[in-house]
Nucleic acid binder design. Structure first.
Lengths: 232, 232
DNA sequence: TTTTAACAAAATATCTACATTTTTGGTTTC
DNA sequence: GAAACCAAAAATGTAGATATTTTGTTAAAA
């Protein structure tokens, strides 16, 4: 038996592939997703394809109208603002809990992932560097959040992360490819960890909220510049 | 054209019907959901049925294992505790925001729904009374939450409400059918509204958190008494 | 006798191909 | 210019083929 641990049916493969294609911009916001094309691209029948689409609908990456098929969910400044507002509040709340409840192994995890993140330097390609920094940055924030001790809260957090992903990708390139921006983030993280370990939950909460809302203005500009929002 | 406004395809009908059947206990936690039976009961082919199941999976009401079909998600004291913990924190946070940001029309909405809820009295059948109180109680809490001004937060809130529904149903019968418990809730609501309107967001936050966690011990007892949890 | 292993049959899940229904977009008619 | 119509395109649904898992049986090993 190969390395297929859990779910390896066609629906899953199509789901993962389409999700990637949407977040990577192969299909752009508002694009119509024609069955014909999808079937061809993912080599799958309509039934399973619909199921995969269905999942993305529940993640708000795709919208569906009965009898009129599927579209890539549109992006807008309004959604950007709201989603980051909600996410920042959620993350801040989780952070407060983590500071209150986190034990020694939580602290260890935070410190370890901070270190790992700080070690990302120029690699073969800039693209590799992007991927690695992103992965470790996510791991860093996850390590913090895990201290809250609630599986459901962590799940909610993931929901938001999924929904924000397309917007976040825009910010990511901006940040990672600017030595200046990257250094600023590094410093923010350093201060954040300091406060976390000092167990000042009010300060930690506020700081995390600020940390999470920072990207909004940058992303806003990029969206307007590229005309990504609400194209008729 | 009839009253069908939006989505009236077979998938939706099956989704709604199955969801109701699960929350109402027609299918019990852990039950295997056989395609054969489902197809028959909801008069639908496997394709659409899978799609409906798929949606319930994303709402955590059903679990799926590749090649082994679907089951009603199990219930457990652990999940009950975690889900109410997460929900209480979320609702408390939203309440705090609502108190900070809610405008006059928000206040009006809260007062109106408080009044409407208080007017529920004995009806034809006890079952009718249950449904009406539940609907108005939900409307009351929604009216409060809407003050937060964030569509995404309200959406997260609904996610949690869906996930908690099976547990909440247990509490509902216990509360509505006991004049004593019902009166206690009424008083809690009265105090809650008082604090909301006084704009004391810290107190409102804490009070909402308490209000939301109250049912846990009651539900816990019911689950143990009925042996609903994790049946082998 | 009890346990383990091997296998075959039945039940079940998954997928494809095609049939049906609905929408879309262009053309004609008033 | 608006309404009515029609054909092409697309979405939705069904039936049945294929693949996988489960179950029951038998026989060998402990």
């Amino acid at each position: 038996m190969a390395t297929n641990d859990e779910k390896n049916n066609l629906v899953n493969l199509a789901y993962v592939a389409l999700k990637r294609d949407i977040t990577e911009g192969v299909y752009r916001p508002g694009d119509k997703l024609l069955m014909r094309g999808l079937k061809e691209r993912y080599e799958i029948g309509s039934g399973p394809m619909r199921e995969a689409l269905s999942r993305l609908v529940s993640e708000h990456l795709v919208t569906a109208i009965s009898q009129r098929g599927f579209r890539v969910a549109s992006m807008s400044i309004e959604e950007l603002t709201d989603i980051y507002f909600a996410r920042a509040h959620l993350e801040a709340m989780i952070t407060e809990l983590a500071v209150k409840l986190g034990d020694e192994s939580w602290e260890a995890g935070v410190i370890a992932s901070t270190h790992t993140l700080s070690k990302v330097t120029q690699l073969n390609s800039a693209e590799d560097m992007l991927g690695l920094w992103d992965a470790r940055h996510k791991a860093f924030h996850l390590a913090i959040a895990q201290g809250c001790g609630s599986a459901k809260l962590l799940e909610l957090r993931l929901t938001m992360l999924d929904q924000v992903e397309r917007y976040r990708q825009l910010w990511l390139r901006h940040t990672v490819f600017s030595a200046e921006a990257l250094e600023a983030k590094r410093e923010e993280h350093r201060q954040l960890v300091e406060v976390l370990l000092s167990r000042d939950h009010v300060k930690a909460r506020d700081m995390m909220f600020e940390h999470m809302t920072g990207p909004v203005s940058i992303i806003s500009e990029i969206i307007e510049a590229r005309g990504l929002a609400e194209h008729e």
